[in-house]
Amino acid sequence: MSDGIVYWLQQILNALQLGSIYALIALGYTMVYGILTMINFAHGDVFMIGAFFCFLAATALGLSFAPTLLLTMLGAALLGVVIERLAYKPLRNAPRVSAIITALGVGLFLENFTLALAPYPKHIPPLLENVTWNLGGVSVSSLQVIIIFLSLGLMIVLDYVVHRTPVGMAMRAISWDKTFVPLMGIPVNLIISITFAIGAGLAGAAGTMYALAYPVIDPYMGIMVGWKAFISAVVGGIGNIRGAMIGAFILGGVEIMVAAFFPSTYRDFVAFTLLLLLIVIRPYGILGQPRIQKV
């Protein structure tokens, strides 16, 4: 293959890896928004905590990859539920702004609390033997393959849960109408907790994979990655699960392209400008539907 094609295939592979991590986190944003019309600003920090859980499981408990991933997802899911119950539930009927501020506060609390306990960046031990294959000039690592396919697998499972199971049906019902659904005997609080658990669990999985791919972690790592995931959710149309996945791969692709052509410090600039333009021009994203305001 020519050098040009090899180069681009390599970039596409990188974009897929970045995009799948964004997608796993973006799903949490979009699910919570769908069900509560609330932006969970603390979600990026749940991802960060996931990475630290992974560190603990791998070093203190000395676990291997699969149990580490499982434990991390469970831990993150639990954290998500606790945050919802303690901080968001009391504000469900308060003005929207209160919930946004609270979410920001929770996020900052998680960051600084982690920083107080772990003042220095942590190194994640390699949990997987990383093999690099050379496919016609394109180097593919086993880690990349695992990240991409595991993420895709989790997304397929989620898509199935949301569209094919009673729990998923209840979620969609609540996001459709919050006044009458409780009257139909759907346990709203339980479904909301499950939503937070699933979203946070996926963020935990993303944390693990991110930590394996970029093995130095610190308490502030969740801010930027979280925001990028959020942008992905907005690109796809917030509240729309399949949109979030598509949006994540688009953003991953854009970022890799920007990094290929410009100094890498422009990445954030481009991502946030994209967000800004999108919100002003097409706030309901690629797959979202515009809402008509009733007077």
């Binding site: 501020i101 609270t102 506060g105 600084n112 920083l115």
Partner: peptide, 16 residues
Amino acid sequence: VWRMVIMPLLLVLVML
């Protein structure tokens, strides 16, 4: 370090 933890906690408590 801990005053940085107190700060956001305060914000959440005020909101709640």
